[in-house]
Design a protein around this nucleic acid. Structure first.
Lengths: 221, 221
DNA sequence: CAAACAAAATGTACACTGTCCACAACTATT
DNA sequence: AATAGTTGTGGACAGTGTACATTTTGTTTG
């Protein structure tokens, strides 16, 4: 039959799957959503566009996600996981030195902060998506939000703080709730950089400011 | 003519203005937008709903705002102004004591922080709207974003820091960029409370944490 | 004072979104 | 091979922002 002509038309834009079944539509939709979030933030992850990119009718999405919100949540979980991995890789780059010493503990906390900030600057869309909606990451055991270590960003921060207690840098009585102090400062700075008045600051200014914030955290914990 | 029947229908919901001209539609739309933002955050300020509340056709808005985004910006400016006023009133409650002493300067900075946090908790929708989009408040002379003093939140913070330098609490060489350190910490905490893992924390926990963050800022500046 | 004009509203229309429902195509099971 | 269940399609609807043409109105003139 004359498949060539219509094939050209069809193949022009969409992936043009040949089988009726897609095979792994859920993953395809999720990845499309992630890509949308990466380049446009949470507001850009629109259900119909995801189905379009997957080469599928809009309603097909509802076989895999209960609603647009459910898709967004899945994308968000993935974004948080990416953040965790960014932090992990920053920590790994540091841990190659001596272990459990005071300076190592400080370096670990610092790595969490710089990983967090780097991710915010580098993957702004995903970072925004990570915090586009209320959530409790504290005792959230969802693996989709964890990095390779199985820990989510909040837990990685807790780990660094535990190290500081063990090495005597942080008095044990100040350990409780310390996550929130550190996270507040670093998250606030990240926000000021990507959404606030620091948006037009130079890289070196941002770097200098990051150093000061991390120092403030160390001193003020 | 039989105006009674249709009048009942019309009068049922909308403000039912009788003149063709509205009189002050711009203000009406802005106030409707503010109300929407207050109760639902930035996403809830939808142009058509604002016109509905003003008792006017959707397109009427375009005589006063170039786009939905323009309306949102106006709402946002007003939200920032409200934030400034919240900070101002907190500062005023403190300044009744001794002036220009070290403790007064510290109290001023503290007032900025608590005003900021109170506003975030009390007027969550407006607070979210204030930071729903990139902006530079630093040298923004827009009066719509200022409080009664004519200063916007960022400038109020700067003022408090200036006081600290004058009273010798803050070494002059650490003054530059200190706004960002303080703002980072407090803004981050505000976010954790309203959108993050601290959403389910009790009031007393939040209060205690706020104290610690403000202390961290004082120590770490 | 009537006529002309600019401003402010309306009405219609379009593209786009999320989502519901009925139906078709395919797979797996009996 | 018949049947049931899953996964996709097609059509429809309400809701959004917004462009265009049109009507209503207050103001400014001749």
């Amino acid at each position: 039959m004359s498949a060539s002509a219509s094939d050209v038309l069809i193949r022009s834009l969409p992936p043009a799957r040949k089988t009726f079944r897609h095979g792994d539509l859920r993953r395809a939709l999720l990845e499309a959503g992630i890509e949308l979030a990466r380049s446009g933030g949470p507001g850009a992850v629109v259900l119909r566009e995801a189905t379009r990119r997957a080469g599928v009718a809009p309603n097909a999405a509802y076989r895999h996600f209960a609603s647009h919100g459910a898709l967004l949540q899945a994308v968000r979980a993935s974004a948080i996981s990416s953040l965790a991995m960014a932090i992990e890789s920053e920590m790994a780059a540091v841990r190659r030195r001596k272990t459990s010493s005071a300076s190592a503990a400080r370096a670990a906390l610092r790595a969490v902060g710089t990983g967090y900030l780097k991710f915010a600057v580098t993957e702004t869309g995903l970072f925004r998506t990570s915090f586009s909606v209320p959530d409790e990451v504290e005792r959230d055991l969802d693996d989709a939000k964890a990095g390779r270590s199985g820990l989510n960003p909040f837990q990685l921060l807790g780990l660094a703080l535990d190290l500081m207690v063990e090495s005597g840098v942080l008095p044990r009585e100040r350990r409780r709730g310390a996550e929130y102090l550190a996270w507040s400062a670093v998250h606030g700075l990240a926000f000021l950089i990507i959404d606030g008045p620091l948006g037009s600051a130079s890289d070196s200014e941002v770097f200098a400011l990051s150093e000061r914030v991390l120092l403030m955290v160390e001193k003020g914990l």
